[in-house]
Amino acid sequence: MTTGEQREGLDREPAPSLHDDLVGTPTPSRPARPTWLPSYIPELQGLRGIAVLLVVLYHSHPRFQRTPFYSASLWGWTGVNLFFVLSGFLITSILLESREKPHYFRNFYARRALRIWPVYLLALAVCYLKADWFVGMPVAQAIRTAPWWAYLLFIQNLFHLDLPAGLGPTWSLAIEEQYYLLWAPLVRVLRKPWMLAGALATALIASPLFRTTHFVWITKTHTLTHLDGIAMGSLLALGLYTVAWGRRTWLILGLCAIVIGFTLAGTVAGGTAFLDSALTCGFGGAVLSSIAATGFRNPVNALLRRGPLPFYGRISYGMYMTHIMVFIYYGWFDARMDAYGTLGDLAVVAFRLAVCTAVATILWYGFESRILKLKRYFER
Rank of each mutant, 00 (worst) to 15 (best):
S290L: 04
I291C: 01
I291Q: 07
I291Y: 02
A292T: 10
A292Y: 11
A292F: 07
A292V: 11
A293R: 12
A293N: 12
A293I: 06
T294Q: 06
T294E: 02
T294P: 01
T294N: 13
G295W: 10
F296L: 15
F296H: 15
N298V: 00
N298A: 04
P299H: 03
P299A: 06
V300W: 15
N301L: 08
N301Y: 06
A302Q: 15
L303V: 10
L303M: 14
L304R: 00
L304N: 00
L304P: 00
R305K: 11
G307E: 08
G307D: 09
G307M: 06
P308H: 04
P308V: 08
P308F: 03
P308S: 04
P308K: 01
L309S: 00
P310A: 03
F311S: 01
Y312R: 00
Y312M: 14
G313T: 00
G313D: 03
G313K: 01
R314G: 00
I315K: 06
I315Y: 09
I315P: 08
S316N: 07
Y317P: 08
Y317W: 08
G318C: 01
M319C: 12
M319E: 04
Y320E: 03
Y320Q: 06
M321W: 04
T322M: 15
T322W: 09
I324V: 14
I324C: 09
I324R: 12
M325W: 03
V326A: 07
V326D: 07
V326Y: 09
V326E: 05
F327S: 11
I328H: 02
I328F: 09
I328C: 09
Y329S: 11
Y329Q: 13
Y330K: 04
Y330M: 12
Y330Q: 01
G331W: 12
G331N: 10
G331S: 02
W332H: 14
W332D: 15
W332P: 02
F333R: 02
F333N: 08
D334P: 01
D334Y: 14
D334I: 13
A335C: 10
A335H: 13
